[in-house]
């Protein structure tokens, strides 16, 4: 059952938005139960890439293949970067999570006991069981983040896409969420694609990195991508990769000018 298979295969994709080329010749694969980090600075096109994978934006060239038919059969979970929820909306957290399972279905099927059990299981998996009875509009940012994950997981997806789930979290919370995702990946056997602008919090768990810069993409195992030659080719100018205290710093290494850290990749 749990054999390795390709879930999504992005082949030679270009994306243009409003006449502007946002992504050029993007190639990468996501295998089952693999943890992929989508790394790039703000505005690099991470959200665009995720939305393209979801089918919300169509590529101008190339194709996205789904060998296991996961998208067609709605086995893809998505956690957007920002969800604006109406504060007064009469929905408990568990109602909202259940909508991840049947919210897109017309008709009034009764939810079975097993649906509710799955809802509780997922809330438990993201360590948010205590939130079940709360009003969805009354959650804090970190709580909502977990609930959104449970919402995405409840339909038992093969692939979970998360758009910048670590932004706006303090370092401790960041580590919690990353470890939580790694555990979820192992237990639910789900592939995780997570976008972030800082690579460091993901280094321990990441099987593969998809690095976006300058509208181009380099992908592969972390140690094969986060190298001076690969990244320099991507950025179009010389870049150094410095390892300090087990952390990676990508610094702009223009030999003619002062060495300046790449603003978005420096660790705080």
């Amino acid at each position: 059952m749990n054999e390795i298979s390709t879930i999504v295969d992005v082949r030679g994709v270009d994306v243009e938005l409003g006449g502007r080329r946002v992504l050029t010749n993007v190639n990468f694969k996501v295998e089952s139960a693999e943890f992929t980090g989508l790394i790039g600075s703000n505005g690099a096109g991470k959200t665009t890439l995720l939305r393209m994978m979801l089918g919300l934006i169509s590529p101008t060239r190339g194709e996205v293949l789904w060998p296991t038919n996961a998208r067609e059969e709605r086995r893809v979970g998505y956690v957007p970067q920002k969800v604006t929820l109406d504060v007064d909306v009469p929905l408990r957290v568990r109602d909202f999570v259940a909508l991840g399972d049947d919210g897109h279905r017309y008709g009034l099927r009764r939810r079975t006991r097993s649906t509710w059990e799955r809802v509780e299981e997922m809330l438990d998996a993201v360590e948010a069981s205590a939130l079940g009875e709360r009003r969805i509009g009354a959650l804090s940012g970190g709580e909502l983040q977990r609930v959104l994950m449970a919402h995405a997981l409840v339909s038992r997806p093969e692939l979970l896409l998360l758009d910048e789930p670590l932004a706006n979290l303090d370092p401790g919370a960041t580590q919690d969420i990353v470890e939580l995702l790694a555990r979820v990946r192992d237990r639910q056997h789900v592939a995780v694609v997570l976008s972030a602008h800082d690579i460091n919090s993901l280094i321990g768990v990441m099987d593969r990195v998809v690095y976006i810069a300058n509208a181009h993409v380099a992908s592969g195992p972390t140690e094969e991508v986060v190298r001076p030659d690969v990244l320099s080719a991507l950025y179009g100018h010389h870049v150094d990769v410095v390892r300090v205290h087990g952390r990676v710093l990508v610094v702009s290494g223009d030999p003619m000018g002062p060495v300046a850290a790449h603003p978005d990749l420096v660790v705080e």
Partner: peptide, 10 residues
């Protein structure tokens, strides 16, 4: 109504 983006993604 609760989450337009998420419902579109689904």
């Amino acid at each position: 109504a609760a989450a337009p983006d998420l419902s579109a993604a689904r």
